[in-house]
Design a protein around this nucleic acid. Structure first.
Lengths: 101, 101
DNA sequence: ATCCCGATATCGCGATACGATATCAGTATT
DNA sequence: AATACTGATATCGTATCGCGATATCGGGAT
């Protein structure tokens, strides 16, 4: 099975949402990404959240919202810094590859 | 060891160069990418070229240039189409994640 | 208690990244 | 024509990752 060209971009997407929305849970991200025409497998999403947390980029707080147990993630300072760094790098790449758009 | 956030973007980079430069060999790509502050491991580059060829996106022609045996890759129509599709997708993602740049 | 349901977690496996290492083929040197 | 040199390409080993499928978990309703 062939993997999407932009697989792995999900990490940045998640980081972005955690920084931008203040806090966000897995299903929120799944919904958000789905509205953009993608779909993230839970088998990708949740391990990625855990990884980002373990890296020290996200911190988790559990809470019950709308009758559901949810795990909200917010970005740490290290997470914000990592996002900035990633954005710079991506911009460089995009500026080259997207030439003419 | 932690993988780069934008690993896997290399495929698009390679496709882009194959389309844009007409034809390109592995070491050219390595050099090109290096000038942009990245470095691609040959253990990533060559298997990726082979994969793209197997996918039908690149075609290879062997030639001796400057006293060196080189394998030049050029994009097939399918390769061009794949690049376009990838660019659209990436643009969508970037427009969202890069908000405010 | 039991069922329902959405959120989260895990499993299994193929795909991928990538440093390290090897191979391969022209060229120059002898 | 054998050898050494050099840059290009290939492969190996291993950790990481993606992801569909499947399981679990917990709050609320019946």
């Amino acid at each position: 099975m062939e993997r999407e060209f932009f697989a792995g971009f999900i990490k940045i997407h998640i980081l972005y949402h955690a920084v931008h929305e203040g806090e966000i849970c897995g299903s929120d991200i799944a919904r958000e990404i789905a509205t953009h025409g993608y779909n993230v497998s839970p088998g990708t999403l949740y391990p990625t959240l855990h990884r980002l947390e373990k890296m020290g980029y996200l911190r988790m707080t559990e809470r019950v919202e709308g009758g559901r147990r949810r795990k909200y993630y917010h970005a740490t300072p290290a997470g914000r810094k990592a996002l900035e760094k990633a954005r710079v790098k991506i911009k460089e790449l995009v500026d080259e590859v997207m030439e003419g758009d």
